Simulated scan of single mutants.
Amino acid sequence: MKFSTDRLTIRPFQSEDLHDVFHIYKNEETCKYLLHDKWTDENMLKRFNEKVENRSLVKGTTLSLAVVNQTKVIGDLSVWYTDMRDTVEIGYSFSEEVSGKGYATEAVSSLVRMLFHEFQVHRIQANLDARNIASQKLCECIGMRKEAHFIQDFWNKNEWTDSLIYGMLLSDLK
């Protein structure tokens, strides 16, 4: 699966993407609200190879896609089916250096359209740490609505955190 936007190419990860992806995930700030800690020299190859292997969207697996600007990977999109029929969850991470340039909105918006139109999903959702204001803004910008705010419902990185759930249907597309 490969598709493009005005400024981006979105495609499966390739072996030569390792260092660009490591650059994204070695950043403490980028990983602050993710479920995993920042990548290290010791675990980067294992974590990256998992992304390379995730090349299709089928039940029981995660699809991982590289977001490429010119020749550099600047972001990572993930999609997986939930237990609910025709429902997927999305995740995304972008290099801190491209923050505020609209790349994340462009990539995630394009992904959402593809999921509705090519995969005929019924519902797309995103679960996020309530402290992640940038992610909340991105969800709202692409037409997702905040459907739930759970108070201290998730134990992550040695603390209780609030969770937000955003969701959208095809009819919510802007």
Rank of each mutant, 00 (worst) to 15 (best):
H23R: 14
Y25M: 01
K26G: 00
K26H: 10
N27Y: 01
E28I: 03
T30Y: 03
T30V: 15
C31M: 15
K32Y: 04
Y33E: 11
L34V: 07
H36F: 15
H36Q: 14
H36A: 15
H36S: 15
D37G: 09
K38H: 12
W39L: 00
T40D: 06
D41M: 12
D41L: 14
E42G: 04
E42S: 10
N43S: 13
N43H: 05
K46A: 15
K46D: 15
R47K: 15
R47H: 09
R47W: 04
F48N: 00
F48K: 01
F48D: 00
F48G: 00
N49S: 12
E50G: 14
E50N: 14
K51D: 07
K51W: 01
V52F: 10
S56D: 14
S56W: 11
L57D: 10
V58N: 08
K59A: 06
T61P: 05
T61V: 14
T61R: 13
T62M: 10
L63D: 00
L63Y: 01
S64C: 14
V67L: 05
V68P: 00
V68L: 00
N69S: 11
T71Q: 13
K72A: 12
K72F: 00
V73N: 01
I74S: 04
G75M: 08
D76G: 04
D76L: 00
L77Y: 08
S78M: 08
W80E: 13
W80R: 13
D83L: 09
M84G: 09
R85P: 11
R85W: 11
V88K: 10
I90H: 06
G91S: 07
Y92M: 04
S93E: 11
F94G: 02
F94A: 02
E96H: 10
E96M: 09
E96W: 07
S99G: 12
G100T: 07
K101P: 03
K101N: 13
G102N: 05
E106L: 01
E106M: 01
A107D: 06
S110P: 04
V112T: 12
V112Q: 06
